[in-house]
């Protein structure tokens, strides 16, 4: 999971997110007008269309909303299979597409609790990934 050929482009809409991850923190936008969280980053709130926002650190806790174990490299990415793609619903209520790290492919279930595991990769790219948390 160290292939960053498909590294994200940082721009003024998204650079706070990627910079936060390099510090090991997952930042999401919180609308200053209506308090709605949002991800992926957007210049305006999808609920009230206000632009004022703050970047807040997500707790890093969430649950698996859907998952797929990928067994073959598709569209040329990545080189290492299998890997697990998940959609995680964060405690803050937003969804994020991500991966499970480590050997948790068989154990993944919808509803499983997960916690943030930021991956520091090559070329200064850090990604928000997750690991299965203890159910208790």
């Amino acid at each position: 999971m160290s292939d960053f050929r498909f590294a994200p482009i940082e721009n003024p809409d998204t650079e706070a997110l990627w910079a936060g991850l390099r510090d090991g923190r997952l930042l999401i936008q919180k609308c200053s007008a209506c308090n709605a969280h949002r991800h992926p980053p957007s210049p305006i709130c999808h609920r009230c269309n206000e632009g004022e926002h703050e970047w807040v650190e997500a707790s890093g806790r969430g649950t698996v909303w859907s998952h797929s174990v990928v067994h073959e490299p598709l569209d040329g990415w990545p080189s290492e299979v299998p890997y697990t793609v998940v959609i995680v619903t964060l405690e803050e209520g937003v969804k994020i597409v991500s991966n499970l790290v480590e050997g948790s492919h068989e154990a993944v279930r919808i509803g499983a609790p997960v916690e943030l595991a930021v991956t520091q990769g090559a070329a200064g790219v850090a990604l928000p990934r997750f690991r299965l948390a203890d159910a208790g």
Partner: peptide, 15 residues
Amino acid sequence: LSTGWEDFMNPFGAA
């Protein structure tokens, strides 16, 4: 990559 939705899918092999 553009800075659209791909940035939040491609790095995870989800696109």
